[in-house]
Computed example of a mutant assay.
Amino acid sequence: MRSTAHTDPVLTQSGCSSTAVRALQISIAADKALVAEVRHTVRTALESWGASVIADDMAVVASELASNALKHAGSEASVRLRLSEGQALLEVDDSSMQRPVARRVGAEVEEGRGLFLVQALAAEWGWRYREDGGKTVWASLPVPAGSAA
């Protein structure tokens, strides 16, 4: 697993003030054991950026989306986290063209609830096909005012 984080000052539309954009990118090999590291890395990044209030929820979202990407694509995946203007956006790219579908499963089944968790925790979520093949599944959570540095 390889991750990079950075903070960029970005001009606002007025051009007079700036806001920090914090970003993290994680590349993960096709190994489901790395999902726990993704969860930890996302949580730690949000905490260090002053967004602790959403760190646990976004860590669960990251875990579920990364796990789904590795399971259904069977290849490496890329996870991006961006924090800007009171909004955290998580995107997961994989090589599969299979669209994500939340499915109902029985109480005795141990898997299959990931997208229901994402729906419950995220303010919004969705997916899109990528021009270079595969898809991106994304989820966003608002950061309450005064929470993020």
Rank of each mutant, 00 (worst) to 15 (best):
residue 1 M to E: 14
residue 1 M to I: 09
residue 8 D to P: 00
residue 8 D to H: 02
residue 10 V to N: 01
residue 11 L to S: 09
residue 11 L to I: 08
residue 11 L to H: 05
residue 12 T to A: 15
residue 14 S to G: 09
residue 15 G to T: 08
residue 16 C to V: 06
residue 16 C to T: 06
residue 19 T to E: 12
residue 20 A to K: 05
residue 21 V to C: 12
residue 21 V to S: 14
residue 24 L to R: 11
residue 24 L to V: 09
residue 24 L to S: 14
residue 24 L to Q: 07
residue 25 Q to D: 10
residue 26 I to C: 04
residue 26 I to T: 01
residue 28 I to W: 09
residue 28 I to A: 14
residue 29 A to N: 06
residue 30 A to T: 02
residue 31 D to L: 14
residue 32 K to L: 13
residue 33 A to P: 00
residue 33 A to S: 14
residue 33 A to M: 07
residue 33 A to T: 13
residue 33 A to F: 09
residue 35 V to I: 13
residue 38 V to E: 04
residue 39 R to M: 12
residue 41 T to A: 14
residue 41 T to F: 11
residue 41 T to N: 01
residue 43 R to H: 14
residue 44 T to N: 13
residue 45 A to P: 00
residue 46 L to H: 09
residue 48 S to F: 00
residue 51 A to R: 02
residue 52 S to Y: 00
residue 53 V to N: 06
residue 55 A to Y: 03
residue 55 A to L: 04
residue 56 D to P: 04
residue 62 A to Y: 08
residue 62 A to W: 05
residue 62 A to S: 12
residue 63 S to R: 09
residue 65 L to R: 02
residue 67 S to D: 01
residue 67 S to Y: 08
residue 68 N to R: 04
residue 70 L to M: 09
residue 71 K to A: 15
residue 71 K to Q: 15
residue 72 H to I: 11
residue 72 H to L: 10
residue 74 G to R: 03
residue 74 G to K: 01
residue 75 S to M: 11
residue 75 S to W: 03
residue 76 E to K: 10
residue 77 A to D: 01
residue 79 V to R: 06
residue 79 V to M: 14
residue 79 V to C: 10
residue 81 L to I: 13
residue 82 R to Q: 14
residue 82 R to E: 13
residue 83 L to F: 06
residue 85 E to Y: 08
residue 85 E to S: 13
residue 85 E to W: 02
residue 87 Q to T: 13
residue 88 A to S: 12
residue 88 A to V: 11
residue 89 L to P: 05
residue 92 V to N: 08
residue 92 V to H: 08
residue 93 D to L: 06
residue 95 S to I: 07
residue 95 S to H: 10
residue 96 S to C: 14
residue 96 S to Q: 08
residue 97 M to A: 02
residue 98 Q to I: 03
residue 99 R to A: 11
residue 99 R to W: 12
residue 99 R to M: 15
residue 103 R to F: 03
residue 104 R to N: 03
residue 105 V to G: 13
residue 105 V to S: 13
residue 106 G to T: 08
residue 106 G to L: 11
residue 108 E to D: 12
residue 110 E to W: 06
residue 110 E to H: 09
residue 110 E to I: 14
residue 111 E to Q: 11
residue 111 E to S: 10
residue 113 R to P: 00
residue 115 L to R: 00
residue 115 L to W: 04
residue 117 L to F: 08
residue 118 V to E: 06
residue 119 Q to M: 05
residue 120 A to P: 00
residue 124 E to K: 10
residue 125 W to T: 06
residue 125 W to M: 05
residue 126 G to Q: 01
residue 131 E to H: 15
residue 132 D to Q: 12
residue 132 D to V: 07
residue 133 G to R: 13
residue 134 G to S: 12
residue 135 K to A: 10
residue 136 T to C: 14
residue 136 T to E: 09
residue 136 T to K: 05
residue 137 V to K: 03
residue 139 A to N: 04
residue 139 A to H: 05
residue 140 S to L: 11
residue 140 S to M: 08
residue 140 S to Y: 00
residue 142 P to C: 05
residue 145 A to H: 00
residue 146 G to W: 07
residue 147 S to G: 00
residue 148 A to G: 00
